[in-house]
Design a protein around this nucleic acid. Structure first.
Lengths: 229, 229
DNA sequence: GATTCATAGTGTTGTTTTCACACTAAGTCG
DNA sequence: CGACTTAGTGTGAAAACAACACTATGAATC
């Protein structure tokens, strides 16, 4: 079956920059392409948008199909449509970025992906298409957005210690923060709820666990509160 | 002539939210649609992306064709692709926003637009498609971006008084600012260059004219400087 | 040419926020 | 019980912010 239109149309795809955090590193999920063009090269997971599905849906679907990831925090990044970015024809792609904690997800390649692997951000292969550019844009966006939106909590367990939270900010922002100032600042905001639990299985004094209070955050946001680290 | 593909493709369009500033008001440029669907309704200027042109180019081209505007500051806003947003078929649109000073541009409707008119932001008609949503998103983005990127200068003449600059911020941010604090803050940044001219044709003491020093701004940005009003 | 009028232009002070910095407390491990 | 590791806490100096009112200049009017 084929589809015929009165005017030529660019193809439309979605691509996902998935950031994953473990205890020390920020990584990004890439797939090895099974098909031409760029067969055997590493690329962002993604694929064609189907008629009748929203682009957000397409992004989630492709991410799940190719890497097995689902139910992740996913946000639109930008759309790139240089007509020469794909050697075959004019392909416009809507890029998304996602945040996950590595320990929560097992990835497994499927469909058009020969492999799906986490790469450290400072040890990346050359990517297919203009995916390097997209990845850089996503990394910058992650850094700047982390500072004024509480998206970092997507990268942590439900309950976490302040030390974990601080480490997250230090890894993504790539600079050290002062422990006391950090704690004062984040606690004063009132978006963290102290639980009565402490971490376990540590070989030293256990730290208190906190939880992000999304309700409080939303309430405060409506009243003009501005989150910022 | 027709075009045939193996898989169905959504149509791809661009739409522009053009903000215009006069001395007192922030306005937005709308066109009256000449064609179905929503014939006779007001909408954002925009149209189909052609194969072989970049999406930025498509946005500029459509804006010029339908309203006569060209050489404006134009930046990508977001992409919306709900399959039901257009009653005809699945149409994905890349939205842009633009900033102009009203006095610099005469608009004139053409091609698919029966009229092109500036509307005050608090007196808008109901728009075609989901253009209300796009417009709201653009307005929010303008407000927040104005604070931490020096895009406001796009809305002023090359040389301007500090009073004009402050008025711009007050109009877009919709709150009053203290004259002395505003002047101190913006001058201390060092991104304004004082000219040796003063404004003319005013019936009172004339104010000094300043110019935005883009070079200085770029230099400082590379060194980690962070613009913020 | 004196007066009026409108806007330009300027400083100070108290408050808040930021930043730099070091020790004690608690729990584990041997 | 001593050594080790991380949790948890406060203070002071510097910078940024917010609130606030008067004098200076030039044009217009009489």
């Amino acid at each position: 079956m084929t589809f015929t239109y009165d005017y030529a149309r660019p193809a439309l795809t979605v691509d996902c920059v998935v950031f994953g955090l473990d205890d020390h590193d920020l990584k990004v999920l890439l797939i090895e392409r099974k098909l031409k063009p760029f067969r055997g090269k590493w690329a962002l997971p993604g694929g064609f948008v189907r008629v009748g599905e929203s682009i957000d849906h397409a992004a989630r679907r492709e991410l799940k199909e190719e890497t097995g990831l689902e139910k992740v925090f996913l946000e639109q990044l930008c759309t790139v449509g240089n007509p020469l970015r794909d050697p075959r024809e004019h392909v416009v792609t809507v890029a998304y970025y996602a945040l996950v904690r590595l320990s929560d997800h097992r990835v497994h390649a499927a469909t058009d992906a020969a492999q799906a692997l986490w790469f450290s951000l400072d040890d990346l292969p050359k990517l297919a298409f203009d995916h390097d550019d997209i990845l850089n844009t996503a990394h910058q966006r992650l850094r700047s957005k982390l500072r004024y939106q509480p998206i970092g909590f997507e990268l942590l367990p439900k309950k976490f210690t302040l030390r974990q939270l601080q480490a997250l900010y230090e890894i993504v922002l790539n600079r050290e923060l002062d422990k006391r100032n950090f704690r004062k600042k984040i606690l004063k905001m009132g978006v963290l709820e102290e639980t009565d639990e402490i971490e376990s299985d540590v070989a030293h004094r256990a730290a208190r666990l906190f939880r992000f209070d999304r309700q409080a955050y939303r309430r405060m946001t409506r009243r003009g509160f501005h989150f910022e680290i």
